[in-house]
Every structure is written in C-alpha cells, then in structure tokens.
Amino acid sequence: MTQTIDEIFEQICTLIAPFNKKNIPITKDSLFSVDLELDSLNVMDILSEIEDEFDITVPLNMLPDLETVGQFAEIVKQLLSEQ
C-alpha cells in the first residue's frame, strides 16, 4: 500500500491545482514562491489540504525548509513511513 514518491507528487499537484490560477506547469523543482507565485498563506492552506488528504500531521514549523513541490512530496513520504 505504500505509495511511490511519484504517486505522492501527482496527488500533491492535484491539491495545488486550485491555487495555481495561471496553470503554471508544476515540476518537483518548482519553487512555491518564485515559480508558482504562491505566498506563504497559500502554502499554509496547501499544507492543510495535504494533511487531510494523506491523514498525517505536517507541522507549520517545517515550512521554512519546504520550498519546492518535490520537498513536500518527500516529507509526506517520510511522514507516511513513520506511521
């Protein structure tokens, strides 16, 4: 049942879609702030969606280290494996 990093990434992209008003193509290296033009409030809202989607707790304290979509996917994978 464990998901691959690519599956997690795809799922996260779906969650980001409603915030990605200009439909900017998302890669694992996309920076939330620069590439996707999202501010910290958007990122906090996305984080909350991710928590509910994957049924995990991602503390706000982790946000400063999460700059790219790929880093989000990795942290989700790590938190899922710790359960």
Partner: peptide
Amino acid sequence: TVVRFKHNDADNLDKK
C-alpha cells in the same frame, strides 16, 4: 509543534 485548522471549522479541528 504548530498545527493549523480551517477557520471556525469544527470537523477540521477534530481531524487535526
């Protein structure tokens, strides 16, 4: 550890 729930949303608080 800081966790944030949706504004005034009781179900979301419960989930978190």
